[in-house]
Design a protein around this nucleic acid. Structure first.
Length: 897
RNA sequence: GGGCGCGUAGCUCAGCGGAAGAGCAACGGCCUUACAAGCCGUCGGUCGCAGGUUCGAAUCCUGCCGCGCCCA
């Protein structure tokens, strides 16, 4: 025990010891019942860490540490999500390169010291190598931070979502889905981001307010003309915000009940400018009050168009390319001479330019009627993009998730997913609604293919027919042993490399899987499904998935789905949803302001325990303000634990404990882990209490018994809270007790513990202090692992993190406790302090006379602790008066300075 | 527009049917043989608003208002 205890340096010292001793190593001989397994969120390795990471990962660590102390073998791996668009973009910016798949691999390529203004094109393989180089650097920094933060992760169970093992598992699970018909390829209208040039899934959408304008436009009845107006009285007016889609129009649609348009149903009209004949149709999705009440259905302006196109069996007249520009060639459905000439002016234009030109043409022909009226309306965006999504037709892979089942379809995947949601234990419980809303609101299957370069390749090839055309519905799949594969370089079974991309040969699927298609398998990847099935059986289904509430619709949902499809089970029993971190002024931290706080800086300034303390104060699921004040409080608490431990041990409690304790092996029995000897204990096999339990037979003072009784309640509450994943309540009750213990109980028993009274009283106090300290150090261990380990090491053998969680039986005394002894003594000492403070006297000042009025029972209780109260308050004479109203009143008389 | 959550002391938040709480801040003290980066004490609130249920409502119900998130 150091002379002057300090928090400085504890992190480095104990982190090294834990690493050397393998304190958190997973014991893979444990059976599933003995294991507590965590599906740790793999952080996205595409930049720097955020205080939010520290916040939520600390919550999980507290739970893991608690379960470990309860005797569970904790499977707590760490993964890195280095697969996907964020990494791809970061590599582009960091090295100043871009992926150009047509280039050959350059084994000698080295990126420039500083990225230039022009991005250097590199081959796909070079690009992927740079991704791996950069993420490896980031991952080192992440691991250093997590160790400093005190996460009790077993670092030997790491993974990367882009590593070969994860790729193989991801591809294997996908191929299983294909075999079972749960995954399929389909040519369909797809939401498309023109900037990233990739398809986008429903889960990645967000609505944003976008400014547009209503254009009132004339469609014509009667005979075909030259594209200009004829017989204006016969015109049908529609209102649209997207006049550039007139060439893609396939029908006009109104509500079947709309009397204005009923006469037109079944007839045709001709489009302005292009003179293309389209039918007028009825569909209930047309909104009578919106615009003119009749809508232009184009392929494809929005998802309603897709629904109409599908349900009314309309032709596909797509005019927008995947680059966001209009087709170069004139579409064959535009036949009029004027129409074809007008297309010439539009060919290859961006959507934006095309709109301007078409509006100008409409003004010229007089087919644009009235004023253009600005409007702001929600438009779908890719969450990472900044241009509105287009809808293009493309061939994509989908996994069935129930989203295509009609609302009334029962016993389908949708219902099964809803049942899984009810089966899962949610913390907090109300987060379940987010999941249910999402499942109910699904409107299509999960689109899993992405037109990107860096990711897990879609592991299939397609045969080519005699003309070199792809035969999409007969994909070629690899042998399981060959996984992972890259179809752009590997060859399918039964083919040779020379047959690539030649008629009668094959072609590789160029796409990669959505990152969620891999992330949705983190329990399988971490648990080594299909790689080490013995391990997998010991950890799966897992116990806990901790994650943010913002990704319930993506990560949580997709993980439940994949597990349901592959294993017919939930992936875990519990889901714990953590809240967000907010700036002190409840706003987002802004990098431009430079007020972003780096986690490592905080850990260094306040100490890791203090930062963890702040994190532990955030209730499960509740958004929490970033609060340096709470970190200061946490640091003070850690200091207090140091000082209180030093004081108690300095009084001599260790002697009492060792002399009286005798051999105790209750804890190792409780852990139930099988044969335990010294060596396996040291290597982390189970809870160890080498110091043994204090002997409570010496506890004779009523005040001491009351203290232990109150601590028993604390243990019960903290344990129940942690069992329910509520680390915040556990900390709160522990902390509250601890301050009371220091401020009142320690002050009360100081003199007696020093041995200023009789020997029995002294031994009683020392035994109580030892028992209480031993419990408190362990109660704090999950939240404050460094300082708890430090103070534990002063007098106990082994790691506090492998000690058994406090049990109420440790605190049982032979005689019944009267809690009032403690409360009355505490109240009276408080009264004395108040009197001294009001008279601005030193706390050491002697009190000549003390008068206590109280109910008879309270006075009786006070008598039991009177010697302690008098010593603590420096009271000479005491008078106890039975009070008529039962209220406790302390009167301090004649203190002499 | 729908779902969910939240409006309690200057700030951050507990409490969620039985006398309004904690910490921080503010203010006033105390060198007290564990801790002055400490300790003691004091001040501070129509529990968002309006109804209702109840012997009793911050707590349950209804409706508003405001904030946030998720989804249309």
């Amino acid at each position: 025990m150091p002379e002057k205890p300090t928090l400085d340096g504890l992190e480095d010292r104990w982190a090294r010891v834990w690493e050397d001793e393998g304190t958190y190593a997973f014991d893979r001989s444990a059976t599933r019942e003995q294991v507590f397994s965590v599906d740790t969120p793999p952080p996205t390795v595409s930049g720097s860490l955020h205080v939010g990471h520290v916040f939520s990962y600390t919550h999980t660590d507290i739970v893991a540490r608690f379960q470990r102390m309860r005797g569970k073998k904790v499977f707590y791996p760490m993964g890195w999500d280095d697969n996907g668009l964020p990494t791809e973009r970061r590599v582009q910016n960091f090295y100043g390169v871009r992926c150009e798949p047509s280039l050959p691999y350059d084994p000698d390529f080295t990126p420039p010291e500083k990225p230039g203004k022009q991005q250097i094109p590199v081959s796909r393989k070079n690009f992927v190598e740079l991704c791996e180089t950069l993420t490896a650097e980031d991952e080192k920094a992440f691991e250093a931070l997590w160790r400093r933060n005190g996460l009790s992760v077993d670092w030997s169970h790491g993974y990367q979502t882009i590593d070969a093992r994860a790729r193989a598992i991801s591809q294997r699970a996908f191929l299983h889905n294909v075999e079972r018909g749960q995954a399929y390829v389909s040519m369909a209208p797809t939401l498309w981001d023109v900037t990233f040039r990739t398809a986008v899934a429903q889960a990645e959408l967000e609505d944003r307010e976008h400014t547009g304008a209503w254009h009132r436009i004339a469609y014509h009845r009667g005979e075909p003309g030259d594209g200009g107006p004829n017989g204006a009285s016969d015109d049908v007016f529609i209102e649209t915000t997207r006049p550039e889609l007139i060439p893609a129009c396939v029908a006009l649609i109104a509500h079947p009940d709309d009397e204005r348009y009923q006469p037109l149903f079944g007839t045709t009209v001709r489009s302005p400018l292009f003179d293309v004949e389209v039918p007028v149709l009825a569909h209930p999705a047309a909104e009578m009050e919106r615009g003119a009440g009749i809508a232009m259905c184009c392929t494809f302006g929005d998802l309603t168009d897709v629904a109409w196109w599908r349900e009314l069996d309309l032709p596909n007249r797509t005019i927008i390319n995947r680059d966001g520009r209009l087709l170069r060639d004139t579409p064959d459905w535009i036949t009029s001479e004027a129409g074809r000439q007008r297309w010439e002016e539009l060919a290859g234009a961006t959507v934006h330019t095309a709109k301007e030109r078409i509006v100008a043409m409409l003004q010229e022909t007089g087919e644009l009627v009235g004023d253009v009226r600005p409007v702001t309306r929600p438009v779908k965006f890719y969450e990472k993009g900044d241009k509105p999504l287009e809808i293009v037709s493309s061939r994509q892979w989908y996994i069935r998730n129930g989203g295509r089942e009609a609302a009334g379809d029962h016993a389908g995947v949708r219902d099964e997913m809803l049942a899984r949601g009810r089966e899962l234990a949610w913390h907090p419980e109300y987060m379940r609604h987010r999941y249910e809303d999402w499942v109910r609101g699904l409107n299509g299957d999960w689109l899993v293919s992405r037109q990107r370069f860096f990711g897990v390749p879609v592991p299939v090839w397609y045969p080519l027919d005699g003309d070199g055309e792809v035969i999409p519905d007969k994909p070629l799949t690899p042998d399981d042993a060959a996984l992972p594969v890259d179809p752009t370089t590997d060859v399918p079974p039964g083919y040779t490399a020379e047959q690539r991309d030649v008629p009668g040969g094959f072609t590789g699927d160029p796409d990669v899987l959505d990152t969620w298609a891999t992330s949705s398998l983190t329990p399988q990847i971490a648990g080594l499904w299909s790689v080490d099935d013995d391990l997998f059986a010991r950890v799966f289904p897992m116990d806990l998935r901790p994650q943010g509430h913002d990704i319930i619709r993506t990560w949580l949902f997709s993980t439940v789905l994949r597990s349901h499809l592959e294993h017919d089970s939930l992936p875990w029993a519990h889901a714990a949803l953590s809240g967000w971190i907010l700036d002190p002024d409840r706003k987002k931290m802004s990098k431009s302001k430079g007020n972003v706080v780096t986690p490592m800086g905080l850990l260094e300034e306040f100490g890791s325990d203090a930062v963890r303390y702040w994190a532990a104060g955030g209730r499960p699921g509740v958004d929490t303000a970033f609060d340096r004040g709470q970190m200061k409080v946490g640091r003070r608490l850690a200091m207090k634990l140091l000082n209180a431990s030093k004081f108690i041990l300095g009084v001599g409690v260790g002697d009492t404990q060792r002399s009286g304790a005798g051999p105790v092996d209750g804890d190792t029995q409780r852990s139930g882990a099988g044969p335990v000897d010294g060596d396996t204990q040291r290597s982390g096999a189970g809870p160890v209490d080498a110091g043994g339990e204090p002997d409570l037979s010496a506890v004779s003072a009523p005040l001491d018994r009351a203290l232990l009784a109150r601590l028993t309640e604390v243990v019960e509450k903290a344990t129940a809270a942690l069992d329910d994943y509520d680390y915040a309540v556990a900390l709160e009750v522990t902390e509250q007790f601890f301050w009371f213990f220091c401020d009142d109980y320690l002050e009360l028993v100081k003199s007696r513990a020093y041995g200023e009274f009789d020997e029995a009283g002294r031994d009683s106090a020392r035994a109580t202090l030892a028992a209480a300290l031993r419990v408190l150090q362990r109660l704090f261990a999950p939240v404050l692992p460094f300082v708890a380990e430090e103070v534990w090491s002063w007098w106990q053998e082994g790691s506090v993190h492998l000690a058994s969680w406090p049990d109420i039986h440790e605190l049982a005394t032979s005689a019944e406790a009267d809690p009032q002894v403690l409360t009355v003594a505490s109240d009276v000492i408080g009264g004395i302090r108040r009197a001294k403070s009001e008279q601005k006297l030193s706390i050491r000042t002697e009190v000549e006379s003390l008068s206590v009025q109280a109910a008879p029972a309270a006075l009786e209780a006070l008598r039991e602790a009177l010697a302690d109260v008098r010593a603590a308050g420096r009271v000479r004479d005491v008078e106890l008066v039975v009070s008529s109203d039962g209220e406790l009143v302390t009167t301090v008389g004649g203190p002499t300075a």
